[in-house]
Design a protein around this nucleic acid. Structure first.
Lengths: 153, 153
DNA sequence: GCCTTGCCTGGAGTGCACTCCAGGGTTTTA
DNA sequence: TAAAACCCTGGAGTGCACTCCAGGCAAGGC
């Protein structure tokens, strides 16, 4: 099939997840190879295997020869994990959430709490970013003013 | 003087910068020891030295015996760096900005560009976080509904 | 049949942003 | 004037989240 291996988002900065070349879902099916999922999610195949190893994925189905076959449910889960990743939640905490899901319905309240605390973090971070935006705008204005002044001179 | 060494923000997650015990500025002075600055900024003394080593700080003034003496200007700079850090900007890029500042006024347009691109990143991240918030709210509602239903049963 | 491409595993390596250590000098407090 | 607390440097160590490697199996095209 040959789907070109994922465009790596520059490794330094905060996880990106808005990569250009996100492939559309190969329609109607429910069994995807690892490279298809990589192309769709923007994660590398390495990362997908690693997610499974550390327990961040429910164990993925295999073909009769042992190759991974991801389902639409897996893709939904990965999309949600992507959102959590955007919040800056550490992978260990996501694994904890995944464990709660595995444990079944009696962990609903724990999961709810975890998500609510995440929600609070997100609100705080949005606030911080807004403050930062104000500072940036102020500094940008300063530079723009200075340049206008020097052009007039 | 003995200012207790900085409360380290949990190392895993995204930089925090909203630590509880931020000390107020020791008023009116213009020469602060490294531990005073650490208490004030929430950065560790190690990190402050490291910032200087990698060129993220203009070279800091010294006492006659070689100990660092930070000024109010340094504190302003650190506050700004803190904002940039919140955007998720890699340290290497901040160093680049610091270099531009060192190079003088003819780098105004470069600096402005750099800040504008950062500004765009911040806007994008705010958008992502808002999307994430919607997903979280939806999931939290799901759990809350499920729990209400099971209580009624 | 053979070549290319894709996938598998366990484990080692990488890059970033700190964080700590050893071994020593300095300043403040009692 | 001691003890305690603080600060210095260069370099090594840490934790996180990947990222890559070696060595090998499997499937499709020619």
């Amino acid at each position: 099939m040959t789907v070109t291996q994922v465009a790596k988002s520059k490794p330094g900065s905060v996880p990106d997840c808005s990569d250009e070349a996100r492939q559309p879902l190969p329609d109607g099916r429910d069994r995807y190879t690892i490279s298809e999922v990589a192309a769709f999610t923007g994660l590398s195949a390495h990362t997908l295997r690693w997610y499974e190893r550390i327990g961040l994925m429910p164990h993925v189905d295999r073909s009769h020869t042992g190759q991974r076959r991801f389902t639409n449910r897996d893709l939904d889960w990965l999309a949600f994990v992507g959102k959590l990743r955007l919040t800056g939640m550490p992978v260990a905490d996501m694994v904890r959430y995944a464990e709660l899901v595995r444990l079944g319905e009696h962990t609903f309240s724990d999961r709810q709490e975890l998500l609510e605390s995440t929600r609070r973090d997100v609100l705080r971070r949005i606030g911080e970013l807004r403050d930062t935006l104000a500072v940036l705008d102020h500094k940008i204005d300063t530079y723009a003013d200075a340049r206008r002044a020097s052009e007039r001179a």
